Amino acid sequence: MMKLTFLLICSRYAMALYNQHVCPVDNWLYNQSCEEELHLQSGPTLCCTLENVPLISKCGTLPPESCFFSLICSTGSFIVMVIVLLRYAHVIEKHQNCVLNTAALSTGWICAAGLIMVGNFQVDNAKILHYVGAGVAFPTSMLFVCLQSALTYRLAKTQGEYNVAHLRLAMTLLAFIALVLSGVFFVQESFVLQHASAIFEWVFCVIIMLFYGTFSFEFAGVTGDTVMVLARGGALGPNGRGHKVESLGGPISHPPESMSML
């Protein structure tokens, strides 16, 4: 699912570039103003202004890419909610619930809510709401990967799990650097720094999507019991799972009081 979302995001940039709504990322030359708007220009050399910086939001402002931008963000928000929920249940099933796991669930869903706002309120049409959504989505996505990195280290027992933790930590550090540089450069008036901000913004989003892709290591072991964790309100931990198996097929039966305590 994350691969599909990544391809859709790249295709949206390609669509905006094809329609000459934004300048290519390899173009670092900007002017204060141009005689013609970018989409009316022709020739190998284009005149670009700050209105044409290839920020993620700018690549989804004008139709037809604005329609795909809204669709991608809404679909991506749903995917994020599903992945975050599965990760939450998987941790409870294999280990036990903890503050880090609950906090990661909350930040992941808040990020999904901000992503919906970003996609459905384009920056040129509803700037305040768009920036509110971005102000929610970007920091919470950064916080989510930080929590998941810490949670991975806390639950790691084998060398393979520690390797995944090291990978996630490295991706978290790179995402943090990209996010900080993107925010610092975005508020500058320099054309070059604005363009660099757009590049770091894309880098941040790509790293975050790759981070979500690393959950495939854990999700390979997802079973029907993972869904049962959610059905039981997160009360089925490793001990609860063992009692569940015994009560279904083992010789040991437990009174109802034991299940209520679990």
Rank of each mutant, 00 (worst) to 15 (best):
C47G: 08
C47R: 05
C48H: 14
C48R: 14
L50S: 12
E51P: 01
N52D: 14
V53H: 09
P54I: 04
P54L: 05
L55D: 01
I56E: 05
C59K: 04
T61Y: 06
T61D: 13
L62H: 09
L62Q: 11
P63Y: 04
P63W: 02
P64H: 03
E65C: 05
C67W: 01
F68C: 09
F68N: 12
F69E: 10
F69K: 05
F69Q: 08
S70Q: 04
L71V: 09
I72M: 15
I72N: 15
C73I: 10
C73S: 14
S74L: 13
G76R: 12
S77V: 05
S77N: 08
F78H: 02
I79V: 13
V80E: 15
V80P: 12
V82C: 07
V84Q: 14
V84N: 13
V84D: 15
L85T: 13
L86W: 06
R87E: 15
Y88I: 00
Y88Q: 01
Y88G: 00
A89L: 00
H90Y: 11
H90A: 09
V91I: 12
I92T: 04
I92D: 00
E93H: 04
E93M: 01
K94F: 13
K94C: 08
K94H: 11
H95Y: 10
H95M: 03
H95F: 07
Q96D: 06
Q96S: 08
C98V: 06
V99F: 11
A104T: 07
L105N: 08
T107A: 11
T107M: 14
W109A: 00
I110A: 05
C111H: 12
C111A: 15
A112E: 08
A113C: 13
A113M: 13
A113W: 05
G114P: 08
G114S: 11
L115P: 11
